[in-house]
Design a binder for these strands. Structure first.
Lengths: 140, 140, 140, 140
DNA sequence: GTGGTCTAGACCACT
DNA sequence: GTGGTCTAGACCACT
C-alpha cells in the first residue's frame, strides 16, 4: 500500500491518508482480504501520531471498506473487492474539482495552458520515478 | 480581483483566499496601489464571514503585500509592484507539489498518464469558460 | 510568564498581551523552547476570549518568536534564545516614546518634574510589590 | 493649546486628543472663555480627519467642558474655569495607572529602577525642549 | 489535553 | 462608507 502525505498543504493529514487508501481500494489496487499495515507501522512510516491512523482506519471500517480484526490486523473488506463504479466516479469527480482549483491558481500566477501541461508532465515523471524506486511494502 | 473558493475540499477557506490573492499580486495580475474589495464586500461575495476575510487581509498586510488603510480601504502595497521572482518561484513550486499529490491520487485510482492529461485538458476548458463568462469586477 | 492587562486604557487588549510577551522573549526573560501557557489557559487567566489570545500567538508565531505545535502546545522559538539587540532597542525606544506621552500629559495637568518623578517612584514600589506577591506560575 | 498625537501607539487618536485638551482645562492651563483652535485648524495641524476632531469637541461640549458657538468658534466653558479637584485627581490616578503599565513593560524588558528613572529624566528633557521651541499657538 | 478554523454579531474608530 | 477589536460558541484535527 502506498501512502504519502504532504505536510503544510492545509489538507488534514487524516484526510490525505483516508483518500489514498480509499482510492486504492475503490480502484482495486488493494484487493479484498489483503492486509493493511498495522496502525503502529503506518503511523511510524508516516511520522504521524498513532491515534490519527486509528481514526482513519475506524472510519474506513465503519464504511465497510476495511475490517479491523482484533488480534489479527486490518484487512481490506471482502465486499470491497469489486471496484465500485459509483464511488470510483465520485472520487474521479473530486479529482477533477481539484484540478480546476490548481488550474485557477496557476492561471492567477500567470501560467498558460502550455505551462500547466508541462507542470503535469513533470509531475508524471516524478511520480513514476517514485513508484519504481519505492521499496516494496513489507505487507504490500 | 478573482477569488473562487471550493467548500468541502479540506483546505481551509482562508488559505484558499490567501493563496489566490497572493498569486495575483506576485504575478502582477494585481498591480501596486490597486484597491482590493473591502473586507465586507469580499465576505459577501464569497458568502464567508467578515472575520475570515479580515484574518487573510491581516496576514497579507503583515507580510507587506497589501496595506489596510483605516477608513479608506485595502490596497496592494506599493513595493509589491515588481513581481517578486523568488516568491513567485516558491509559489510555483508549491503548485508543482500539489500536482504531484493529484497525480499520485489519480494513479492510485488506476488512472494512467493519458487519463490525467485528459483531466487537465478538461479543467483548462472549464476554467477558460469561467473566466470568459465572469462579469468584470466592479473594482477589478 | 507574567501578563497583566489594563482594561479601559484605550490600548487594545491583544496589543497589551503582545507587547508583554514580546518584551519577555526579547529580553531573555522567557527562554528558547520554554512552554507558554496554552491559549485556553491564558485566556482564562486574563478573562479574555480564546480567539484574542490565538490572534496574539499567531502574530508572534508569524514573526518567528514563538512556535505553535498542533496538539502539543506553544513554545518560545529556538532562534529566539539569543536576545535580539536590534529588536530590544526598538522596543526600548517605543517605551521611551510612551514615557514622552505620559510626561506631556502630566505637564498638561500641571505636574512638574518632581511630581512626575514621584509618580514613577510610586509605580516602581507598586510593581515591585506585585512581583513579589505573585504566586509563581505553574509553567513559569 | 498643545496637542500632540502619537500614531501607532494603539491608543485611538480621538482619545489622545480628548485626554490632552481635558487635562489642560482641568488643570487651568486653558482658562475659561479661552478660544480653542477651530476644528479645521486643529485637524490640519494634527493631520487628522476633520470628523475626528469634531467628535472630540462634541464630546467635551456634551460634558460641559467647552462650548461650540455657532459661527463664532469653540471656547473653554465659563464654569470650567475653577480647576475641578475631583476630576483632576481622577486624571492623575489614570496617569499613575499608565506609569504602572510602563514600569511593568520596562521590567519585562529587563530594565531596573535606575534604567526607568533615566528614561523618565530623558523624557523630561525632551519634552521641556519641545515646549520651549514650540511656536506659540496662534490663538493659544 | 492541545491548537485551528469559522460563524454571528456587537461596538468602536477613521475617512 | 471603511477597517479594528472583541465576544461567545461551535466543530474539527493532532498528541
Amino acid at each position: 500500500m502506498h501512502v504519502r502525505i504532504q505536510r503544510g498543504s492545509g489538507v488534514p493529514i487524516s484526510r490525505q491518508i483516508d483518500a489514498q487508501i480509499r482510492a486504492q481500494i475503490l480502484s482495486g489496487g488493494l484487493r479484498a482480504q489483503q492486509p493493511l499495515p498495522s496502525v503502529r507501522q503506518l503511523a511510524r512510516e508516516l511520522a504521524v501520531n498513532v491515534n490519527t491512523v486509528v481514526r482513519v482506519y475506524e472510519k474506513l471500517a465503519a464504511e465497510g471498506l476495511i475490517e479491523m480484526r482484533h488480534g489479527e490486523g486490518t484487512f481490506v473488506a471482502p465486499q470491497a473487492s469489486t471496484p465500485n463504479p459509483r464511488q470510483l466516479a465520485a472520487h474521479c469527480e473530486e479529482l477533477a474539482d481539484e484540478f480546476d482549483g490548481l488550474v485557477r491558481r496557476g492561471t492567477m500566477l500567470g501560467l498558460g495552458p502550455q505551462d500547466l501541461r508541462r507542470l503535469l508532465s513533470e509531475s508524471l515523471q516524478r511520480v513514476r520515478k517514485e513508484a519504481s524506486s519505492t521499496p516494496l511494502d513489507s505487507r504490500k
